[in-house]
């Protein structure tokens, strides 16, 4: 390491096994191109066009936004491939889609469609409550959710090339996303000040692979791109996530469940670029119309999607 910023792909282990087909650097590379951008949930080609026009750096194609999944209940699954194809046809920016946790066949289908990223998401009903997808087996890169550092590093070890906080999708309530970002960043700060001898026990405590914990300590950040997600509804929410140290933002229901989606989408995109410039944030936050209806998370009856996987 020593300042050069160069690391080899973790050991000679699992990650390099599939490197012939799609090296980890190429998987991480696309995520790096998304940095400083906003990824928006869209349910049809028309919404995808609105998102692209607003300046989204990618779209997430799905059948129902998380707020509707919450309202309607039932089992949420991968979207109809035809819908994903239509959305892919409509835009030139990268297209992502969600697969259920542990449902590797859904991921295979998404890979065959030729989309750009798979989100192994807790927003859909999990297919496997113990195991995640072995993401090394795929040429397509994956993004996964996390609530804390240990969970993030476990996902990276499974092959995720991008991490997002889980937050609490479909609530329009930023509190959980803040909690999760602070937890990850706080643990990294703790780790940086830790004696090397203590890292073994720390790795055990957070249930993460030692080599990745050590690499995180050296880098002072997660070794892959880290986005925020789950509850972002306003430009201010998005800028808050950026100021807390995230590389970009996912907006789910926040855009298309609001009064004026095109305008709000545009405002959130600008807020992420100019996140540390309050004057720009004032400009973009003015007159956006109604935000999505929020859900108070003190209510015990609200299901916590974030707790669906470890």
């Amino acid at each position: 390491m020593a300042g050069s910023g160069v690391v080899t792909v973790y050991g000679n282990g699992a990650i390099t096994e599939t490197s012939k087909k799609s090296p980890f650097s190429v998987k991480v590379g696309l995520a790096q191109m998304l940095r400083g951008g906003v990824i928006m949930d869209v349910v049809n080609a028309e919404q995808a066009r609105i998102a692209e026009e607003a300046g989204a750096c990618a779209v997430m194609a799905l059948e129902r936004v998380p707020a509707d999944i919450r309202a309607q209940g039932g089992v949420a699954r991968m979207s109809d491939p035809q819908l994903i194809k239509d959305i892919k046809q409509a835009v030139t920016i990268p297209v992502m889609a969600k697969a259920r946790i542990g449902h590797f066949v859904e991921a295979q289908i998404l890979e065959a469609i030729g989309i750009d990223y798979v989100d192994e998401s807790e927003v859909l009903t999990p297919a496997d409550d113990e195991n995640h997808i072995n993401k090394h087996n795929f040429r397509i890169p994956f993004v996964c959710g996390c609530r804390n550092l240990g969970e993030a590093l476990r996902r990276i070890r499974e092959g995720a090339a991008m991490i997002r906080t889980k937050g609490e999708a479909g609530t329009g309530n930023i509190i959980e996303a803040v909690r999760h970002v602070r937890s990850v960043m706080g643990d990294i700060r703790l780790l940086r000040n830790m004696d090397d001898d203590e890292v073994f026990t720390f790795a055990k405590k957070i249930q993460a692979p030692y080599d990745l914990v050590m690499q995180t300590k050296q880098l002072g950040r997660l070794p892959v791109v880290h986005f925020a997600a789950g509850g972002v509804a306003t430009p201010a929410d998005a800028a808050l996530m950026m100021q807390l140290g995230c590389d970009g933002v996912f907006v789910g229901s926040g855009v298309f469940k609001s009064g004026d989606p095109a305008r709000r989408a545009r405002a959130i995109v600008q807020a992420v670029t100019h996140y540390s410039d309050p004057e720009v944030l004032v400009d973009v936050s003015c007159g956006l119309g109604e935000a999505m209806v929020g859900i108070n998370l003190n209510d015990e009856k609200v299901e916590r999607y974030a707790n669906r996987s470890e």
């Binding site: 690391v7 080899t8 880098l219 950040r221």
Partner: peptide
Amino acid sequence: PPIYDLPIYQQQ
């Protein structure tokens, strides 16, 4: 304050 950035991944 140092700016932390992502590692550069390269194959061995």
